[in-house]
Design a protein around this nucleic acid. Sequence first.
DNA 1: AGCACGCCGACT
DNA 2: GTCGGCGTGCTC
Length: 615
Amino acid sequence: MNYYEVAILKSPQENLTYQSLDEIENGTKVLISLRNRKNLIEAVVVKKVEEPTFKCSDIGEITSFFYSTEMLEIATFISQYYVCSFGEAISLYTPFNKEIKINEEQQLFDSKIVLSNEQEKAFEFYLQKKQFLLFANTGSGKTEIYIKAIEKVLNEKANAILLMPEISLTPQMENRLEKVFGNSVAIWHSKVSKKRKEQVLEGIYTGNIKVVAGARSALFLPFKNLQLIVVDEEHDESYKSDSKPRYNAKDLSIYIAKKYNLNLILGSATASIGSFHKLPFIRLKKTYFDTSKRVYFDNSSQELSVAIIEKISTTLSRGNQVIVFLPTRANFKYQICTSCGKSVECPYCSVSMSLHKNDLALKCHYCGYTQKIPDSCPSCGNGIIHNLRVGTAEVEERLKELFPQKIVKRFDRDEIKTDNKLKSVLNEFNSNKIDILVGTQMLSKGHDYHNVKLAVVLGIDSVLNMNSYKSRERALSLLIQIAGRSGRKGEGEVIVQTQNEEFFDYYINNSDYEEFLKSELEFREGLYPPYLKMAKIIFAHANGLKVKDELDRYVKLLKQNGNIEVVGFGQSPIFKLANKYRYEIIIRSSNIKELLKVLHSIKSTMVTIDMDTNF
DNA sequence: AGCACGCCGACT
DNA sequence: GTCGGCGTGCTC
């Protein structure tokens, strides 16, 4: 009889031991029974072990799917670093299939791309360093370098992965890749249909699909000979998963590339501080079109000041387009009573609800709860609910009043719900059928706008004033990303509404982002990442008293540990979410081993651990 | 995470 | 009396 340690897929429980008469290789996917469950469940053989002291059950079925040694190793790392079970970590992967034969036919690609001198230098740097940060201004031609690098790897019979945040939002990348790699490239993200995913997997198994451009999950596809990972817009915080395992696909890419000596390109116009600290970088500043950008500041606090309206008006009268950016989604972020100052809160989550004018309703952004707009304040009964902080729909309405002869459209998650809608709005905009596009973060994410000569940035102060050590990085990179959308060909203007002109002006007009990264690194030394590690311990339970007790118990316990520091603790920013009360503890340490030891020692059903949390 | 067990209130 | 609520605890 053989005995095997087995990890149960998607289960938080520890590995168990099963027996079988068969000789089973490590990584094989098997089906087992568990005492309390009626159906067979999926598990992975981790290793062969000695006969245990307790009685074992038989392995029910051996499948033809298997996880490679590398997959098992990386999953081990994930379970250690991001604090989850091995079963949860390995579940991120799609296994290989033994039954499908690989098509060995060699295919050569010719991108026909000729790199500029600057780009050539960056490519040489890549060949020399293997893993590097492509710190390249908007419009300096990052994509050509990605394609060249992918082309080279594919022509050496290897595979490549290109990670992008929200790839479903960037159809132009898809087009460019398909032009060069044809049927050998596939797109992979959560919105790809089940049927298409099966096709793509089949293609990866047979070797016909050699490169995948995708979201986080593309990192876990069963490529036989992965040699390159490209992480586009590497500063983007959406690479961090917010469900268990809470891994960061960018950080994991760095880990994997270093461990297996793979090629790695992290690309961004506003490089993250972490990557800037960790990797050699090359700067690409020159843009194809000689763009001259002028950035103006406006310190008014009205939604649309006279100066802003004038700028928009001038731009439009010259036949050019305008984008207007806001950090919030709905019409107004907060509804505040003019008499008692309270806002209307969601009954399930302790957050203020947002106004959706089309539906005449208040909507909770976290749980989706919707209610009618109350006629008077629900707290004091006599005040009127007043709108604070403007949103996209409100600005859209205002602009339509101001420029009735112009076409104004909204570009946010409420408006753009499908791929087709996205493509059609982008098409309309790029063929000049829309004059002003009003939107949120979505506006800043890598789209090419050809005729935009003015970017209006509203509400950036609310990003800068958020209570996080990352606020400055977030606000400045966001501003630069949006500014990059204006004047891609020729002259462009940006007008920023802010009370913090000094900060933005210094790094935009007098200095640059590299300078900012260096000063920020100085500021963070000894206090924040990348110099030390931070983690958040989240406590959640329907019983508010119970969870508070648990929090207090752990605060006391953690404060006694000399190897880590309790930075803070208390109610979560959203105290009540989906009917659960939430508290959190933030800890940090320069000693990663000790930090992880502490995190692994926490055994509580109320707790979720978030390593390298996006504060 | 599931899933069962078990101990309490409300129904034919 | 038993149906079903979800709190607690276990899974080789």
